[in-house]
Amino acid sequence: MRRLIRAIAAIFRVELSTMVQYRGESVLWALWGVVYPAVAMAMWQAAARDPADGGGVARFGQGGFAAYFLASMVIGHLTTAWDAFEMGYFVRSGTYSGWLLQPLLPIWRSATVNFAWKLFTTTILVPIWLVIAWAARPEFRVDGLHLAAGVVSVVLAVGISFLWGYIVGLTAFWTKRTEAIGELWFGASLLFGGRLAPIELLPTPLRELSYLMPHQWTLGFPCEVLMGHASVTRVWSGLLWQLAWLAAGAAIFRLAWNASVRRYCAVGG
């Protein structure tokens, strides 16, 4: 464990240095993460303004949508993971070969880079989030339980998002088309994760389908909890679902990793 911590700390320092050096690029990527929820927020707020809907959509008024998409902006940033997109490049370019020859499991490197990027960019995004919150006037009806559960839920969401994204990235060991698979994964998260609309506004079949995918547990559910929309039963069952997805991810990663390395070693790197 001491060895692992030392390696992670060193990678963290170097990655943070890289981000500071190339701060413009890091900031642009971070701002890209603000655009999606901001656009969705504007659209849904406009829809909620329509008197024909009685001034709201389901139980979301303008303030409700502002709260949901503001939460999704923050949680979406914290749960961002890009291994599903990048792994293909690392495998094709041979970078992964170098990592495989080091006495450190490559997932630790990815997790460290991911954490460093979030730490760096969050400091830049906080003022932007505050300005958007001031302008959008979100309505949170959150109590202590929801706040505490929401924080736990976000932490679990970060783990699920990273781990499942990495598992999807491991398809790079089988196919050269991982960028397309990554796009599909992101597309699924738009719909089933609640990035375009709160899960409860989805048609019933899609809502049911979302339980079969990890996406709603990486964004929609934590947003629901932090807004105070989730019942106590829903809070507890949702946290259990998250734990289940995390445990399943860990188990599948272990299997997928061994199979991937065997595959890599079979076809060459």
């Binding site: 390696a7 700390a9 060193a10 320092r13 170097v14 240095s17 890289t18 050096q21 006495p103 450190l104």
Partner: peptide
Amino acid sequence: DLPAMDSFLVQLAI
């Protein structure tokens, strides 16, 4: 993107 010394230090840690 970084001076080689940074990579050296990471290597020592790994």
